[in-house]
Design a protein around this nucleic acid. Structure first.
Lengths: 128, 128
DNA sequence: TTAATATATGCAATAAGAAGTATATGTAGA
DNA sequence: TCTACATATACTTCTTATTGCATATATTAA
């Protein structure tokens, strides 16, 4: 993957937030949508954009499409996502997003029918 | 400066090459133009773009406009520029660019009238 | 098969960026 | 002043993204 593709993804706040979330584990479109507070179409299209550039991967799990960072994730992407947490200028959302993600994952633990196993099993990156 | 602005600059190969060069020290438009093998207008416009986003700074020195990374340079920008040298996928230019820069700086040492003092004095990042 | 849910796609409008040509501005020196 | 040089800007054309709305597809369950 070209490194510029990676930066093309990072230069949009929406996509940046998505990548920040996927860093913690895979998520479905509907849950990203819920966390970001965005429409289905917009969220889906951002994901398509990143998928086409090879920055995120997707696999179908029943009704859901589970998006995730490819393994192994490009070290430059990881490094940048790591920096983001530290840099809080205009990105107060990022921490909040992770908290929302954790809340959603806890909800899944209660009723597992709400998402595919891959997602609710990814409780490793669970903050807050 | 917003971090996304930084990524907006990095997502274009031309701009990436410029930033990679400026990391080593300030340069005038004409010299960047010479190294990149691009037209004056194109080079100038890329610099304007980055200047507007606050990623590079400029100051006039006589006939020349000297572009440079602002002090202190954003740590995320520095970190990424540092990674670039390591990652050679499709960026063979980067090392070559630095060599061309060094050659130009040596040329300046011989005839100092070719650029403002700020530029030819910046021999610190001189590779090759 | 039908219905419900999750997701993707096609189309249209708009905005943002890229690139070229011509020209303007600013500075220094004669 | 005029000239030469370095750089910027205006204007046009073209491509790429962004967004919204409507609709299509895919999967599951009934």
């Amino acid at each position: 993957m070209e490194l510029t593709n990676l930066y093309k993804c990072l230069c949009d706040v929406q996509r940046l937030r998505i990548l920040n979330l996927l860093k913690e584990g895979p998520l479905c479109v509907c849950h990203l949508q819920e966390i970001l507070g965005e429409t289905q179409v917009k969220t889906s299209k951002q994901l398509q954009y990143m998928k086409k550039l090879g920055v995120v991967g997707a696999r179908r799990e029943g009704v859901w499409m589970v998006y995730s960072l490819p393994e192994p994730t490009h070290p430059v992407l990881l490094a940048n996502l790591h920096c983001l947490q530290a840099d809080t200028d205009g990105f107060g959302d990022l921490i909040g997003d992770l908290k929302k993600r954790s809340a959603i994952l806890r909800r899944f633990a209660a009723n597992p029918g709400e998402c595919p196993p891959v997602v609710y099993q990814a409780t490793d990156g669970c903050h807050g």
